[in-house]
């Protein structure tokens, strides 16, 4: 369509190029699918690491819902960007603790991971836009997953076998902000390399 091509051709600067690339990604069914699948998978992984989503043995097949007595618990921080839940949903082997703020964080991070992956996918399938290098954005989402596992006390360290010093505990506070910064940065780094005329 002439109007879109004109806009893309006019895109300059890092933000402009990134936005142009994202627009192309958003306009194609295949890259939209990559975005959605990646985003949902990351959200699920995030909810598992913060402890909201669990798979346990047994459980009845029916869906049961129980709500907390005090909904203001949704705003209570449990440490390291994890927030309390206000409802428990169980269905079969799955137990899900619904925490609105955890979902918000997970969706935001998942959207960034999905966008990174969608641009990477475009770079792979569209040789004309060979300016798109493979994105390291997916790895940028890892810090947030680690911080999620560090919810109530750095239990992730138990798995790794490292003792939590005060420095480590302080460092854990930065994992989610670092993840956001890295994901956005990665997106921009990929976007600025796009030559809009190749799209």
């Amino acid at each position: 369509m002439p109007a879109t091509e004109h806009r893309i051709a006019a895109a300059t600067g890092t933000f402009g190029r990134t936005r142009a690339a994202l627009e192309v990604a958003g306009g194609r069914t295949d890259s939209r699918l990559v975005f959605a699948v990646a985003g949902v998978c990351y959200l699920a992984a995030y909810l598992v690491t913060v402890g909201d989503l669990a798979v346990v043995d047994g459980g009845s097949g029916r869906l049961t819902v129980r709500t907390a007595a005090d909904f203001s618990r949704a705003f209570v921080s449990l440490g390291f960007f994890r927030f309390d839940a206000i409802a428990i949903l169980s269905a079969g082997p799955i137990t899900y603790l619904f925490s609105p703020l955890n979902v918000l964080l997970g969706l935001s991070l998942g959207a960034l991971v999905g966008a990174n992956l969608a641009l990477t996918y475009l770079g792979v399938v569209q040789p004309r836009a060979c300016g798109l290098e493979s994105s390291t954005g997916v790895l940028a989402g890892v810090p947030a997953l680690v911080s999620g596992a560090a919810c109530c006390g750095p239990t992730i360290l138990l798995v790794v076998g490292v003792q939590a010093s005060a420095t480590i505990v302080t460092g854990f506070q930065f994992l989610v902000p670092i993840a956001f910064a890295m994901l956005i940065g990665s997106l921009l780094l990929v976007g600025r390399k796009v030559d809009p005329e190749l799209l």
Partner: peptide, 8 residues
């Protein structure tokens, strides 16, 4: 009164 999973 809290939304916790006591199986874990």
């Amino acid at each position: 009164g809290f939304a916790n999973n006591y199986d874990g």
